[in-house]
C-alpha cells in the first residue's frame, strides 16, 4: 500500500513533466505548424474538396461528383501528351541523374587535387534559382545562341518538337546532380573504413568493393535519392513554364503544366478539373514511391 501511494505522485509528476515538455516542444514548432496548417494541410484538404466541384473562381464551387475526374481521364491533352511526357521525363532524368551524381560523388570522395573547388563547382547550379538557369539555357539554346555558334549548327532547339524536351531534361540533370552528389558523398563517408579493410583482406578488388560493399551500404541513400528525384521529376514545372510554355506542339506539356493551364491560363477557368488532376498526380506519385520502395528495399538485405 505504502509503496503505491508513494509511487503515484512520482508517476504523476513524471507525467506532468512529460506533458510540460511536450507543450514546450509544440510551442517550439508552433511557427512551423501554423504555416503547415494554413498553407499545406488546409490547401491539400481544400484541393481535395475542389476536385469534386466545378469552380471557375468567379462563382462559388458547385458540387460535381466525379465529373472532373471523368473529364481528366477522357482529355486528349492529358492522355496523349501530358501523361506520356511526364513518365518519359521521369524515366530518362531519374536514372541519369542518379548514376551521374553517384559517379561524381565517388570522384569527389577520392584524394583529388582541388577536390573542394570541384565540389563547389558541381554544387553551384543547385544554389541558383531555377528560373535564372532556365533563362541561361534559353539563351544557350536559342537559334543563334552559343551552342549553335560553337558547334556550327542551325537547330532551333527549343522550338523543335524533336529536341525541346531533351534540352529541358538535360538542364534538370545539370541542376539537380550537384545536390544529389552531396547526399551521396555524405552517405559514402558514413561507410566505415573497416568494412573496406575486411573486403581487401578477403581479396576483393577495388571494383568488387564498389559493387559488393559500397552500393549495398548506400542502399538507404539510393532509395532517398531516387525517391526525391522521382517526386521532383513528376512535379517539373518552372523550367517548362519559363522555357517553352508546354510547346512546341505540346511536346513539353507535363501534368503539372496542364494543371496550371487549366487552373489559370484558360479563358474559362477549370479549377475543379485542375484539382482532380492534381489529386491524380498525387496518387501516381504515391503508387510509384511505394513500388520503388519495394524494389529497392525488397532485394538484398535490409540495412540501415
Amino acid at each position: 500500500m505504502a509503496t503505491t501511494t508513494q509511487a503515484l505522485p512520482v508517476r504523476k509528476r513524471k507525467g506532468f513533466k512529460r506533458a510540460g515538455e511536450a507543450l514546450t516542444g509544440y510551442l517550439f514548432i508552433s511557427p512551423w505548424l501554423f504555416i503547415f496548417f494554413t498553407f499545406i494541410a488546409f490547401s491539400i484538404v481544400y484541393a481535395f474538396y475542389l476536385s469534386f466541384t466545378k469552380y471557375n473562381l468567379l462563382r462559388p464551387p458547385e458540387w460535381w461528383g466525379l465529373e472532373g475526374y471523368r473529364r481528366v481521364l477522357s482529355d486528349d491533352l492529358f492522355i496523349k501528351k501530358a501523361l506520356p511526357n511526364t513518365f518519359k521525363y521521369v524515366l530518362i532524368v531519374v536514372p541519369i541523374q542518379t548514376v551521374l551524381s553517384l559517379i561524381l560523388a565517388f570522384a569527389m570522395d577520392q584524394q583529388l587535387r582541388f577536390r573542394r573547388f570541384f565540389r563547389t563547382i558541381f554544387y553551384l547550379p543547385s544554389v541558383t534559382s531555377s528560373v535564372v538557369i532556365s533563362l541561361i539555357f534559353v539563351w544557350l539554346f536559342a537559334a543563334q545562341g552559343v551552342i549553335n555558334q560553337i558547334f556550327g549548327l542551325a537547330v532551333n532547339w527549343l522550338d523543335d518538337v524533336r529536341t525541346a524536351f531533351y534540352v529541358i531534361m538535360g538542364m534538370n540533370i545539370f541542376t539537380t546532380s550537384g545536390t544529389l552528389m552531396l547526399i551521396f558523398l555524405a552517405g559514402l563517408q558514413d561507410i566505415s573504413p573497416s568494412i573496406y579493410e575486411a573486403a581487401s583482406i578477403d581479396g576483393a578488388s577495388k571494383f568488387q568493393q564498389l559493387i559488393y560493399v559500397t552500393v549495398p551500404m548506400l542502399r538507404p541513400v539510393i532509395f532517398f535519392v531516387v525517391t526525391v528525384g522521382v517526386i521532383g521529376c513528376f512535379q517539373v514545372f518552372d523550367q517548362i513554364f519559363v522555357m517553352t510554355s508546354g510547346g512546341p506542339l505540346d511536346s513539353t506539356t507535363t501534368i503539372t503544366y496542364l494543371i496550371y493551364k487549366w487552373a489559370f491560363r484558360d479563358t474559362t477557368i477549370k479549377m475543379g478539373q485542375a484539382s482532380s488532376l492534381a489529386i491524380i498526380l498525387t496518387l501516381i506519385i504515391l503508387a510509384v514511391t511505394i513500388l520503388q520502395r519495394r524494389i529497392i528495399e525488397g532485394s538484398g538485405s535490409r540495412t540501415g
Binding site: G20, T24, L27, F28, S30, P31, F34, I35
Partner: peptide
Amino acid sequence: FAALSMLVVLSLLLSA
C-alpha cells in the same frame, strides 16, 4: 528557461 523559450517562440510567431 520555459518562460524564456516561450518568449522566443512568441517573438518568432510575431516576426512571422
